[in-house]
Write a protein that binds this DNA or RNA. Sequence first.
DNA 1: CGTGGGTTTGAGTGGGCTCAAGCCCGGTGG
DNA 2: CCACCGGGCTTGAGCCCACTCAAACCCACG
Lengths: 235, 235
Amino acid sequence: MKKQDEIPTCNTCFNGINSIFKHLSPEQMDLLIYSSTPRIYEKGETLYHEGRRISGVYCIESGIVKIYKTGFDGKEQIIMFGKQGDIIGYRSVLANELACTTAKIIDEGLLCFIPANLLIQFVKENPGFSYEIMKLACKELGDANQYITDLAQKSVRERLAEILLHLTDKFGLDTYQTLQISLTREELANIVGTATESVIRLLSDFKQSGLIDLQGRKIKILDMNGLKHISNAFP
Amino acid sequence: MKKQDEIPTCNTCFNGINSIFKHLSPEQMDLLIYSSTPRIYEKGETLYHEGRRISGVYCIESGIVKIYKTGFDGKEQIIMFGKQGDIIGYRSVLANELACTTAKIIDEGLLCFIPANLLIQFVKENPGFSYEIMKLACKELGDANQYITDLAQKSVRERLAEILLHLTDKFGLDTYQTLQISLTREELANIVGTATESVIRLLSDFKQSGLIDLQGRKIKILDMNGLKHISNAFP
DNA sequence: CGTGGGTTTGAGTGGGCTCAAGCCCGGTGG
DNA sequence: CCACCGGGCTTGAGCCCACTCAAACCCACG
């Protein structure tokens, strides 16, 4: 736990040019910094559990968070990932409901906990901030609607190609074209909404076709246009 | 068009106890009534089109609106229905995006058009109203996440049972247990995310099992618990 | 060197899709 | 009044995608 010795700070997170908090007044910003608790979270830690009361939201300074629902038979359905700059858990806090998802760290990093009442206070007294959060929710809702349509109408093959492109969009590639997020085959299956074996077969199929390359969990994106073509998305 | 002679009014819609507009100031309410244009919309009319600019939102005083996306091969995916008291189109207006869905009247009724800039003005200057809309978006987002999980993990049979229960929740039954919304088999399929023939086969299967009764488009819900059991939802 | 989690591959099966044909029923025009 | 549509509904046959089950492999780790 030596890492805790470096004093963590959320400054980049709060002050970034695209930060959701850019509309806060100086006083509110002070209050935010004073009331929020940053710390390093390790791989496997759970931020909140589906069905439980949620006491605040988390702002991600670094690391990756997996947000998922647990289906009837215990199978995970990954709804989204959170990364640098994302704020998670706000949905349940603002709707004043129990958490409808579970959030778990898959890449360790620095997160800032912000108490629920503080967030609600900001929303109620700062229209600019409120509008910002609302835009976020509306954007997520648009994405969700799109994914509903995909799940209902596309084949597993199409969806897997699309997910690879989405992950590329969100997490980027390194100089060797390697996707900058590491997922198990099972996790990939739990995004796409299919069985682990199907993901494995399709991935090696994509590899045969020269669309991607595989080395363990590293996925190299070789032919983006080929994937776009298969996915029937990204017009 | 004789119906237009009766002067339509949105009063019930704006002043209802659960109205989203309950937090508006008297001046804002006046402005709303002055600036909004109520009229009767007939079956088949389209309020807005997916991919086009959207000039305002609609508040439903009566009637039913179908909100859907059009998939790659032209197939509709119904995202939700709007009824009395619902406000639709706000997502795209607030996110300042092109419409991500199409909205079409399936049961004629009175709707009130509210210009986009007026809605945005209210959101920006009235935190209570803003909070109310935000809660709405968050709630819809929760529903969407649930449906993503269902689509990814449940069988068509389970989903159809679940949809019948959701429709019962939203539109209610008459004294003969008949569902108070009339849909074609194809529309049902486009909610569930399956082929028309599958819906037909499963409905008659449910009828055989004594769960429902069918008379054309009228669906009688006979055994709610049976449907719950099949749907693996509603714990 | 065993243990266990993740990955891979194969075989078999079945849910649900597609295609095709026929039916029902309300509307329309001769 | 009847013939004839046409849209929606129903039923059947056949097939294939993708799931399940089972077995083996790989590799990091204690």
